[in-house]
């Protein structure tokens, strides 16, 4: 167990030990996989001493440290004020014990398909800040999730912050999920501005496919439309989003069922965001 105190140290350890080491924060995903014997690491890099735990608002951008727990995000005043849809999402992640120790960074980087935050962060146009020894870069949320359990992070990079532009007063957003198993089966997140017309429409679908993804095809049906026209297009947008979800039949439901649920959630999320 290593306990580095700087990003540079983490990078160095990752570079040195490669596949035989893994970053460990809350451990809510990692320890499960290790207990199951699905993965085996010689070293765990305990990153909880890094200073990545703040939620700050500066110059119209809300920044969350990757080590913030779901509980900290759920109860953060800044997030409740500026990004209530995210606060609500965090309030409903897993259960109270997972929320207590699980971190947003761990959740995003483990990239379990059946997870919530990534989907809404894509809809919110979030930027992931990835750092290594000597440099840092920004990765758009919609490019962050590459595949099931796979992100765009390089082997010696660590996610340190997630930054979201604070929406204007005209901003609306919502996230709805559905599932009856322990993890969510379908999740839909959206964000837009409403000034008489719908603009800057962003829709993301998660849980049904291998990674959460943005659905531009569905956005186009609502973008630039009046509220009434957008409502009329919801069914079609929902069908498009469903097909784009890359759903396959498994224990969470058949492909048809999941695609249908995507449509239902999109409609409900949009209507709830309007009100």
């Amino acid at each position: 167990m290593d306990e580095p105190e700087s990003v540079a140290e983490v990078s160095e350890l990752l570079g040195r030990f490669g596949d035989s080491a893994k970053i460990y924060a809350g451990g809510t995903e990692l320890l499960l996989a290790m207990k199951e014997g699905l993965v085996d690491y010689e070293r765990l890099i305990n990153v909880k001493k890094l200073k990545c735990k703040d939620v700050t608002v500066e110059n119209g951008a809300l920044s969350m440290g990757a080590l913030c727990t779901h509980r900290e995000l759920e109860t953060s005043r800044a997030i409740n004020e500026k990004l209530p849809a995210l606060a609500k999402l965090e309030h409903n992640v897993a259960n109270v014990r997972v929320r207590q120790v699980g971190t947003i960074g761990g959740n995003l980087c483990f990239a379990e398909p059946h997870a919530d935050p990534g989907t809404l962060l894509i809809a919110l146009g979030a930027k992931m800040i990835a750092e290594k020894s000597s440099s840092q870069r920004e990765i758009d949320a919609e490019k962050f999730f590459v595949d099931a359990f796979e992100t765009a992070l390089e082997p010696d990079e660590i996610l340190t912050k997630i930054v979201v532009r604070v929406p204007s007063p005209a901003g609306r957003s919502a996230y709805l999920k559905f599932g009856y198993l322990e993890r969510p089966s379908v999740g839909v997140g959206l964000a837009f501005n409403l000034n008489g017309q719908v603009s800057s429409m962003r829709i993301a679908v998660g849980c049904a496919g291998p990674a959460p993804r943005r659905v531009e095809e569905a956005e186009a049906l609502l973008e630039g439309k009046s509220r009434e026209e957008a409502e009329r297009n919801l069914a079609q947008a929902g069908a498009l989003a469903g097909r784009a979800a890359q759903a396959i039949t498994d224990l969470h439901g058949s492909q048809d069922y999941k695609e249908h649920i995507v449509g239902v959630l999109l409609k409900r999320a949009f209507l709830s965001a309007l009100s």
Binding site: G27, L32, V96, R97
Partner: peptide, 26 residues
Amino acid sequence: CDVQVCGACTLLVDGRPISACTTLAF
């Protein structure tokens, strides 16, 4: 359940509930 889903292993650490089955002792 051993996968932090059922709560039968709940302990309070600094007054907050955690799953002892998925918490490293240290």
